[in-house]
Nucleic acid binder design. Structure first.
Length: 436
RNA sequence: GCGGAUGUAGCUCAGUUGGUUAGAGCGUCUGUUUGUGGCACAGAAGGCCGUGGGUUCAAGCCCCAUCAUUCGCCCCA
């Protein structure tokens, strides 16, 4: 039995070129959310299993969470999402924190399931939450932050679409307007979530199955279909439009447009899987036909902090996965060239005095110039190849001649241009080059 | 958990109706003399043909199982 070199199923190795992409994406995400005053936090990857049992949405705990018993007999889970953790942290210090809190994190999360495109067992997810604002100011800001994230990655508005709905509005439609009981409402909600994936006939058939025969005979199926055909809030029946949640959603949509976010729309099929959402929910979809999926989702969850036996704190937040985001930026060709951190490669030629060369190299580093040194005693052409393969554009040649007159050769491997200067001059050239 | 596809060199893949020493391109390494690369030329290394069993005189090829990868379903942070 030979040892496998493959990473664990559903998890990725990050070779330097992969890590470079991840670092670029995360740096962009951090920059975007920090523009709005969000601060980064973090927490352990392990949590007590109780934390996930306490909230609703059972499947994720039973089937999709990595769990184990530790040596002290405690039931432990590897975090499958960040929301319970951040709620726990807020609850623990609820009285001393300065609201509104603006927090973000980029945790790695684990779920036990069959890997597929854009969905792995280990992934990283940007989590952005605002705590302590009851009004729609919170929704407006959080969606603006999400939009900023895409804008800063170079995305144009037609590359993605922000879809909004409201849990309260759907509850009002299901219960008050349609008269569904709880079980029917739950089934119909799950169906609506998938309505764009199903053939129309299949959807209607499943809809029929989800409601009681008597209601079906009184034409309820048609009534539901009429509601679901709504493309705008104003397509809904008057009595539904008068509901407070409908007016609130319209306000948020109008405010987003006023804020210059024109690709935000009402979409009745946006339900969100978790039951802890209490108000407006939203998702961002990639409009590219090869990646037409939800990249980010979120909403208002006012009840979660209160699960810890303290006063509830109104919260709006979202999560954005790294795998789907990477698909997005690649499909839309948004990636810039990602250069190495190393400013120059140093070729110490055969016959050059190594202690003297080393002293010069140390001086470069003291100036903050990142240098990788090639193996001593190699031929110059091998240094060229090594530097090029590593993606390092500049080569510093240190032969005995250069050491004697302290005029070093700096060669740009892309253009072939060469210049001779003292160490200080070359250091500043390299620093300018990196800033450009 | 369910279904489809695919496993041959480091990578991308060829391998005829089963037939003897297993192929290409790219990459890697060496050299074309010792301080100027990317090209070219010459050469080399590198394969239990995913694994186990079966059929056959003979299996990379056919059959079964198994593992892995991948796409989708379920579900979705």
């Amino acid at each position: 039995m030979t040892l496998s070199t493959q990473p664990y199923k559903g998890a990725r190795d990050f070779y330097p070129e992969d890590k470079r992409l991840q670092k670029y994406l995360f740096a962009s995400l951090r920059k975007s959310v920090e523009k709005y005053g969000y601060e980064e936090y973090d927490a352990p990857i392990l949590e007590s299993l109780d934390l996930y049992l306490a909230k609703t949405g059972e499947e994720i705990v039973n089937e999709q969470t990595y769990t184990f018993t530790d040596r002290g007999g405690r039931q432990v889970a590897i975090r499958p999402e960040m929301t319970p953790t951040v709620s726990r942290m807020v609850a623990a210090r609820r009285q001393e924190l300065a609201y509104p809190l603006r927090w973000y994190s980029i945790p790695n999360l684990w779920r036990y399931e069959r890997p597929q495109r854009g969905r792995l067992r280990e992934h990283w997810q940007l989590n952005v939450d605002i705590f302590g604002i009851e009004s729609e100011q919170a929704e407006l800001e959080i969606i603006s932050v999400a939009n900023q994230v895409f804008k800063d990655l170079g995305a144009k508005p037609d590359m993605y679409q922000i879809k909004l709905n409201s849990r309260q509005l759907m509850d009002a439609i299901f219960t008050d307007y349609l008269g569904l009981d709880d079980a029917e409402a739950h089934s119909v909600a799950k169906l609506v979530d998938r309505m764009h994936k199903l053939e129309h006939a299949a959807f209607v058939a499943q809809l029929d199955a989800a409601i009681s025969p008597s209601k079906r005979e009184s034409g309820l199926t048609e009534k539901i279909l009429a509601i679901l055909a709504a493309k705008k809030l104003t397509d809904l029946p008057q009595e539904v439009q008068q509901h407070a949640s409908s007016r609130l959603l319209q306000t948020v949509l109008d405010d987003l447009v006023a804020a210059g976010i024109g690709n935000a729309v009402f979409d009745i099929s946006v339900m969100r899987g978790f039951d802890y959402y209490t108000g407006i929910v939203f998702e961002i979809f990639d409009t590219h036909p090869d990646n037409n999926r939800s990249m980010m989702g979120g909403g208002r969850y006012d009840g979660l902090v209160g699960l810890f036996g303290v006063e509830p704190v109104p919260t709006v937040g979202f999560g954005l996965g790294d795998a789907t985001l990477a698909n997005f930026v690649e499909l839309h060709h948004l990636l810039p060239k990602l250069p190495t951190e190393t400013a120059a490669y140093v070729a110490v030629l055969d016959g050059a005095d190594v202690p003297t060369a080393s002293k010069i190299i140390r001086e470069f580093r003291d100036e903050g110039v990142n240098l990788a040194v090639g193996r001593y005693g190699r031929k110059l052409q091998e240094h060229f190849k090594a530097a090029e393969k590593k993606g390092i554009e500049q080569l510093i040649i240190l032969g005995q001649k250069e050491l004697d007159d302290n005029q070093l050769v700096l060669k740009n491997l892309a253009t072939g241009q060469e210049e001779r200067h003292g160490m200080t001059r070359i250091a500043s050239l390299l620093q300018d080059h990196r800033r450009a």
